[in-house]
Design a protein around this nucleic acid. Structure first.
Length: 194
DNA sequence: GGTATGATTGACT
DNA sequence: GTCAATCATACCA
């Protein structure tokens, strides 16, 4: 079990150390975290950049809690709050390698392709059944369960995806060579890869 | 009150 | 590669 204290520190190192950790929801679905991004309050791409609002309240609350928001009016995105208060920050969970409850997740996604089951922030919330109802929930209590990464993994770093401001900041982390990333990393791109 | 904009995805040329 | 879906939020009047 990853304790709340794990998140009471710099969001960038937390984002890196979450690669390889296991996320389980409702004890029925989950997998290994293979892609994350960091956002802090000094970051123009962060929701917390312009101060607290009703939507981002969880980011300004205690670390070790979930921040869930609606994206493009369609999808939900899951974050882990870090280092707050003082520097409202969070780790966006962008992709997991599905390991638990594949049938349930495939049904929710209406899709059998395991590589696209949880490869993307909107996709993994749909597969895991995460909605705004989990906004502000503790990460060390049901419905969540988090287990730390095992042996240290080879980690790749790159610029974050889908943002217009702060796009040059290399705060995206991934498990090197994973087939379950939402997109390939520049340094992870090798000729001949599918 | 109105309007522009997304930490995205899936369908389509 | 392009583009629509779809709506809460933020910001302006």
């Amino acid at each position: 079990m990853i304790p709340t204290s794990f998140f009471d520190r710099d969001v960038v190192s937390a984002a890196r150390d979450l690669i390889g950790a296991t996320l389980v929801v409702d004890g029925t679905v989950g997998g290994t975290i293979v892609e994350t991004e960091a956002y802090d309050q000094q970051d123009p791409a962060s929701h917390s950049f312009k101060g607290a609002t009703a939507r981002n309240a969880a980011m300004f609350g205690e670390p070790g809690r979930a921040y869930v928001y609606r994206s493009y009016g369609i999808h939900w995105c899951l974050n882990f709050v870090c280092e707050a208060p003082g520097n409202a920050s969070a780790v966006l969970i962008r992709a997991i390698e599905p390991t638990l409850g594949l049938n349930v997740m495939a049904t929710r996604r209406g899709l059998a392709d395991i590589r696209k089951l949880c490869a993307g922030p909107g996709r993994l919330t749909q597969a895991l059944g995460i909605t705004g109802a989990q906004d502000g929930c503790r990460l060390d209590a049901p419905p969540f369960r988090l287990e730390p990464a095992g042996a240290s993994s080879q980690i790749v770093v790159g610029p974050r995806i889908g943002i217009t401001r702060g796009a040059e900041t290399p705060w995206r982390f991934g498990l090197a060579g994973s087939r379950f990333l939402s997109a390939r990393f520049p340094v992870d791109a090798r000729p001949g890869d599918p």
